[in-house]
């Protein structure tokens, strides 16, 4: 692939994102803004980000504009004579009050997003995520009221990325592709498979050091802390493969433990789950609560 090709694609992706605002599955070259995401909740950080950015741009234009005017008008070289005033009560009240009002609006929006995020009640499925140096483990705990036993697996960086990322491998990261999409460092041997349209609760912990589980398209990240369990939720709207990475420095291969979530339709998921349960049944392998032994 030529760099020119990449560039055209990048611009196309950017243009598309700016014009139609659709959700991207994965980071695109030249991507300028946060993804809108693919869950019911992920629009909130996206909108908040856009509103806050807008506010900042407006304030920036006003402040920097005033500065620019001052720097042009009040130059000594243009014969400006310094005035003596150092005070303006009205102005000072205005520029203390208006920011407060803006902050109240932002705080209102943010608080709404936060409370909905914190509410994991009503979930129909629970997945336990455990971070290890340097891989993720997924254990399916419960689906639609039924406990799931012995469905769990490690999810590691895919072999091709792993080979390519070695120092001096001489391999081209651009060559790491799945279905024409570059997945260098963003692909795993076995992704987390989840259904769309189901409120999934993730319970997240770690086995050694702190990691952080992040898929931008789900709209959040949350730390995986050894000995502590954090919870978050997502209801994915569209089927697809959503990629992310560990977001908390966790040692030398921190950059090489991607998160891949494959969202499929509910029936596909149920099929997949039944298959995994059948496969797990005969072999009395280690169970979910003791993942450390398999790490």
């Amino acid at each position: 692939m030529t760099t020119g090709g990449i560039r055209i694609k990048a611009w196309a992706a950017t243009a598309c994102a700016l014009l139609c605002g659709v959700a991207w599955a994965n980071p695109k070259p030249g991507q300028l803004n946060m993804p809108r995401g693919v869950t019911e909740w992920s629009e909130r950080p996206y909108l908040l980000n856009n509103v806050a950015l807008g506010v900042c741009v407006v304030i920036g234009v006003l402040v920097f504009g005033a500065m620019a005017i001052a720097m042009v008008r009040f130059r000594k070289s243009r014969g400006a004579v310094a005035e003596k005033w150092t005070h303006n009560t009205t102005l000072e009240i205005v520029w203390t009050t208006i920011p407060v009002l803006i902050l109240v609006v932002l705080a209102y929006l943010a608080t709404g997003g936060l409370t909905t995020f914190a509410d994991t009640t009503g979930s129909q499925m629970t997945v336990k995520v455990t971070g290890y140096q340097w891989k993720w483990r997924y254990d399916y705990v419960e689906y639609r009221g039924k406990a799931i036993d012995k469905v769990g697996f490690m999810s590691r960086l895919d072999a091709q990325s792993d080979e390519t990322r070695q120092l001096g491998s001489g391999l081209d990261p651009h060559a790491v592709q799945v279905d024409g999409e570059n997945t260098y460092l963003l692909n795993v041997d076995e992704p987390l498979v989840v259904p769309v349209g189901v409120k999934i609760r993730f319970v997240i912990t770690a086995g050694d050091v702190i990691h952080s589980w992040w898929v931008p398209d789900l709209g959040w990240k949350i730390d995986a802390i050894p000995g502590i369990v954090n919870a978050a939720w997502a209801t994915i709207k569209t089927p697809g493969v959503y990629r992310g990475q560990c977001a908390e420095l966790c040692g030398q291969d921190h950059g090489f433990m991607p998160v891949v979530v494959k969202a499929v339709t509910r029936s596909e998921f149920e099929q997949w789950l039944a298959q995994r349960q059948a496969r797990a049944a005969p072999a009395p392998a280690a169970t979910a609560p003791a993942p450390a032994k398999q790490g």
Partner: peptide
């Protein structure tokens, strides 16, 4: 208290301890 399942620690207690 959280490790023992109080308040914010419900899930920590339930899943780990």
């Amino acid at each position: 208290p959280w490790l023992g399942g109080e308040g914010h620690g419900v899930l920590t207690h339930q899943f780990l301890w």
